[in-house]
Design a protein around this nucleic acid. Structure first.
Lengths: 344, 344
DNA sequence: TGACTTATGCTCATTCTGAGACTAAGTTGC
DNA sequence: GCAACTTAGTCTCAGAATGAGCATAAGTCA
């Protein structure tokens, strides 16, 4: 036991801190992430080879001289790279794995990336182009959307892929270990046929499992492998950005349940169905309408607005509600409790 | 909107990543943190002036050449600086505030610190010395221990201090803002006398408020101030380590409720009272015994062991239980639900 | 006007909680 | 050996929260 921590030694290699933002909005009942696409961006970042192209999150390096805090640095990059001004920021996680930052050939310049979650309300007319746009987050994680029942991709691609991976284990012990992980993450039924439940918050765990099983593009890319089988469908991202997105999705799905963060995604006034659809978009499954209403109204987090709304599809016009901002300052503001319900 | 992220520019100042560990154990029904004390340690770290001395967490810099991941680096430092081998690690938060790393005079060498939480079970005979020991975490946060009712320190020091701070606001608006924050964090009663609830998870928010109100030593130290009033009692720590500890306490208090992490703090076999006292030590308030038992037994997380125990104080011997490790692999393993109860 | 759509109110059985009474099985003092 | 005390463990009970569904209200559309 020797304490020889030494911050001052000259031989400590420089570390660059990368800041990435998962900027989330819900448009047309679909969860969206702000995406920056293209080789220019990658080139500007100086960490990829020129022939790499793909989707990325808004990101940039932390500059200790300019930015007083990490979050301030992040806000600067978001301001520079997006037309948005999210009202909510939250730090997610700091990733420092070697080899997880594709294109980074120079090992002496290690990038550690700090991921942030930002929430905003943007109407669908927000700036759109080939290079910069809001992408549906289920394009990157098709297996996470259970709103119309269990996604096909699970039977069609993931379960076979995982079974192949399990079978390829060297030892019986390793095989059992893989089986367990698959069961916990994806609810794969075990030997006895007992299927585990799907936990919608385990987004990162599932992605990491697919990465470890070489079933997503990033694992192939990072390890420089060639594969002769078909990868699991779903868009990939540059660097470790899909992992950061997975972290954001899991975190947001969890946070929703105990903090009133949904309202950051809503317009100033909204109907309860609107609110429900937004929550459903995030958590990826449907809710029981009447109970959702009871919960939200009973929580005291919203107040009714005088006018009515009808522009929606034909049907009885819904009452408009507004978030009571002051509850943020009251007791520990609760979230939106939710319980699965596959039926409408 | 310009994307000019540039990771490769030479002028980007070097950033050193500091890794700090909050290693928690519960001994004799008291929550403990592993502390490294002394000027040598601070000197070795090269970031403080020689005349500074105080309590610190085990910590050290992240070395990108040696450590494959941040967590691996942290484990190395914990191994080197403590006699422990915690079974549970979790990343807490990454702090990058300028001026929050005391003694750091050289602004070009900015330290960003990544805090980790580690849990371990250690009997009270673990290595003890003046320099390296387990300290009661309520020594650093006396106002967080409500096990014997509301701590005196709140009326005696904190509430007067906060009132002074509120009164010292420049504008009426700022005054109201301060009042609100104090109310939310500390349950200070508002103008109408309505007292808000105490949320045991808001440990960090409370510490930050005291820091901002210049009521703890660290705020005075970091800003180089002189004060003519008495600070709120409670041990301080070097650097931003008390803030990291606060983060750990809040996180652990929250996590306890939805993940079975308490068991990391327990011996292999334990009585239910034992388990309850451990939970109480962490969350800082008492629980209803019968209901706690009902919950734990009903959760299926523990199984009874054949033998009985009696070594405890005189009374009926309690049954011994053991954590069912396999539940970690089952569905989303639940935590220990708990509800306040001031009575035994 | 009738079919259809969405909003909103209400009921009901079940489970979960918080609180407490009560019984069981040891130890300690005399 | 017995009274007094201490901790363990069972059981009850009322009220709140939850999950599911029925019924009615208030619009649109053809």
């Amino acid at each position: 036991m020797t304490a020889e921590a030494d911050f001052s030694s000259k031989q400590m290699p420089a570390v660059v801190i990368g800041l990435s933002a998962v900027v989330v909005a819900v448009q047309g009942h679909e969860p969206k992430v702000f995406i920056v696409r293209g080789a220019e961006h990658a080139l500007a970042a100086g960490v990829t080879s020129p022939n790499e192209e793909g989707d990325a999150l808004p990101f940039g390096p932390f500059d200790p001289l300019q930015h007083k805090t990490l979050e301030e640095g992040l806000r600067t990059w978001v301001r520079d790279q997006t037309p948005l001004s999210p009202g909510y920021f939250e730090q997610l996680y700091t990733f420092g794995n070697r080899g997880r930052y594709a294109g980074q050939r120079d090992e002496t310049k290690r990038v550690v990336s700090v991921g942030y979650l930002a929430l905003t309300h943007e109407k669908p007319n927000a700036e759109k182009s080939e290079r910069v746009f809001f992408g549906n987050w289920y394009d990157y994680f098709p297996w996470e959307d259970w709103r119309d029942g269990k996604p096909r991709i699970l039977q069609d691609a993931i379960e076979p892929g995982l079974k192949r991976w399990i079978a390829a284990a060297d030892t019986a012990e390793e095989k059992e270990h893989r089986r367990m992980r698959a069961q916990v993450c994806f609810g794969l039924s075990d030997a006895k046929g007992a299927a585990a439940a799907w936990d919608e918050e385990k987004v990162l765990e599932r992605y990491e499992l697919l990465y470890g099983a070489n079933l997503v593009y990033e694992s192939i890319r990072d390890k420089g492998m060639k594969v002769d089988y078909v990868l699991v469908p779903g868009r990939s991202m540059l660097y470790d950005h899909r992992r950061i997105l997975a972290t954001a999705m899991g975190r947001l799905r969890g946070k929703l349940k105990y903090r009133p963060v949904v309202f950051e995604l809503m317009a100033a006034e909204f109907t309860l169905l609107n609110l429900q659809k937004t929550v459903e978009a995030i958590v990826g499954h449907r809710l029981h309408k009447q109970n959702f209403r009871r919960l939200v109204e009973g929580s005291g987090m919203v107040e009714e607005v005088a006018g009515k709304k009808s522009a929606e599809a034909g049907g009885r016009p819904a009452a408009l509600f507004r978030f009571r901002r002051d509850v943020l300052l009251e007791r520990s503001a609760p979230g939106v409790k939710l319980s699965a319900s596959m039926g409408g």
